[in-house]
Design a protein around this nucleic acid. Structure first.
Lengths: 226, 226
DNA sequence: GTCCAAACGGACGGTGTCGTCCGGTTAAGA
DNA sequence: TCTTAACCGGACGACACCGTCCGTTTGGAC
């Protein structure tokens, strides 16, 4: 992904501003991972060693900060997807993708929530990247199914379901790597063609690719207030 | 479960007080399901048609309210467990239990979070009920394994892992029943003995029964503030 | 009907976060 | 070195929720 300023043909931040921007992003990742996605902005600012004003100047909304902070992780996901497609073994590629993303969720505990929170309305900005991811993912799934490794009734949205469930697990148990790994192992085994025993209920209507959400992105549980 | 007042040999609430207590519980369930477990107390009070003071008088802490509001659901879980043990088919009993609890999580969206939030320190109050649940659960698992239906490497904590993951899913997608049902179907299939292909990573150290948490119950992600 | 303790509810002070404003500071070009 | 525009950060007002206080109402016993 290109440097942001050059994309917008921006006015080239001054040296100190650029330095502070970097510090803020680092601090944001740390704080979000430690205290959750909606830790006070002031905490991030303090950790970064800057004032709140500086933070708000650079990232007008919490959402903007979250998105920027986890852009790197999103890129990692994209790369994992590419690598998965490059794997000559279709199943191994699929498996590695799931494991990599879940590992990322496990390590950066802020990431899963960010993943869910950041994507619903990022359509405009990352449209083409998202679209491409969606296409690649579809290819990966089809390929693994054709090879007879991934069960035929696997629906691409199932990946989103699995990732969201795993996200919920690591959010509830931030320090239990064993639980996370267990869940991933179970899910992967149930995705294998040999595991297909009974019929599955109809798949979700979730859009995949950039990942969720359901039709109304605003309807998430936690953040809503009366 | 016995009526609370009689358990504590309480001073018998006055008629209006009892009526209001009931209204509060109903309102709490509705509000928690709609706005999440940490909706403002005032919202609950307003919905119940009482003042905040009345609410606080009856339930001094949010935790007390949550616990009381979902006691009924907890009881339903206990009953489901008993029924599961009564089922002559060990696997069907196990399967029904999982499906019932997950259905409850799906319907009462506040419930899963309450489940997680309420149990860490309820040791004293529900100790014996919890202990019994734990024992029954163990029996259910062993029985299904002995029958050759449930995979041998299934660990009781896996149930907690699965329920927490499902909890996370329905929290993220409150209105997507299809996603929930899909996840449950996948998980159940992967728990079947025939699905055991590769080895699983070591199980989590989660305590089961009354359900989680990890050692430090306070370490949950969302509620924590700086 | 009378009385009182229990219950009620609105109002209020306290706390924590948000996001902006403004006077001081500094990078960088002339 | 000097100038200036960009940048910085602490302070501040707005807001939401919390939990308590207190004057008023009401159930129910006599």
């Amino acid at each position: 992904m290109v440097e942001e300023s050059s994309r917008i043909a921006g006015p080239e931040l001054r040296a100190d501003a650029r330095r502070n921007r970097g510090r803020i992003l680092v601090a944001a990742r740390e704080v979000f991972a430690e205290h959750g996605i909606d830790a006070p902005m002031a905490t991030v600012a303090r950790r970064a060693g800057v004032g709140v004003a500086t933070l708000y100047r650079r990232f007008p909304t919490r959402d903007a900060l979250v998105r920027a902070a986890f852009a790197q992780q999103a890129e990692t996901c994209g790369r994992a997807l590419t690598e998965a497609l490059a794997d000559p073994d279709p199943w191994r590629g699929f498996q590695r993708l799931v494991e990599t993303v879940c590992e990322l969720q496990r390590e950066e505990q802020g990431f899963p929530a960010a993943f869910v929170a950041a994507f619903p309305d990022s359509a405009a900005e990352h449209a083409q990247a998202r679209e491409r991811a969606e296409r690649d993912l579809m290819t990966l799934v089809r390929r693994a199914q054709t090879a007879g490794a991934l069960r035929a009734d696997f629906h691409p949205s199932d990946l989103a379901v699995a990732l969201l469930a795993h996200c919920g697990l690591v959010t509830a148990l931030p320090h239990d790597g064993a639980a996370s790994r267990r869940l991933v192992a179970y899910l992967l085994q149930s995705f294998r063609a040999e595991a297909a025993h009974g019929a599955l209920p109809p798949p979700s209507a979730l859009s995949l690719g950039g990942l969720p959400l359901a039709a109304d992105g605003s309807q998430r549980q936690r953040p809503s207030r009366a």
